[in-house]
C-alpha cells in the first residue's frame, strides 16, 4: 500500500507559467517537481508543482517577485 501525506501543490493555468516557475524554483533552491494537477484542485488537466508545505511562503515570494502567475497554492494529500 502506498503511503500518502500532505504536500504543497501550486497549479498553473498556462504551461509557460509552470515552466517559468520550475526554472525559477531550481535557481532559488526550492525543491520539488512538476506533476499533473491533482483532481482535488482541478477537474481539468495541466501542470502543477509539488513541494513540501513549509515552502509556501518562499514559493509565493519568488513567484510574486518574478511576476509569474499561479492559479492555486494548496495543501493536498498525495502519495509519497
Amino acid at each position: 500500500m502506498r503511503q500518502s501525506r500532505e504536500f504543497l501543490v501550486i497549479t498553473f493555468s498556462e504551461t509557460t507559467d509552470a515552466m517559468a516557475a520550475e526554472k525559477l524554483f531550481a535557481e532559488k533552491g526550492i525543491p520539488g517537481r512538476i506533476i499533473p494537477i491533482p483532481r482535488q484542485l482541478s477537474a481539468g488537466c495541466g501542470l502543477s508543482f509539488k513541494t513540501e508545505k513549509e515552502w509556501k511562503t518562499g514559493a509565493e515570494t519568488v513567484l510574486k517577485e518574478a511576476g509569474i502567475r499561479w492559479h492555486e497554492m494548496e495543501p493536498v494529500r498525495l502519495w509519497e
Binding site: 498553473f12 493555468s13 498556462e14 504551461t15 477537474a43 481539468g44 488537466c45 495541466g46
Partner: peptide, 10 residues
Amino acid sequence: GVQSYRTRQP
C-alpha cells in the same frame, strides 16, 4: 493541454 473543461480556447 490545459483547462480542458472550458468550452472555448483558454
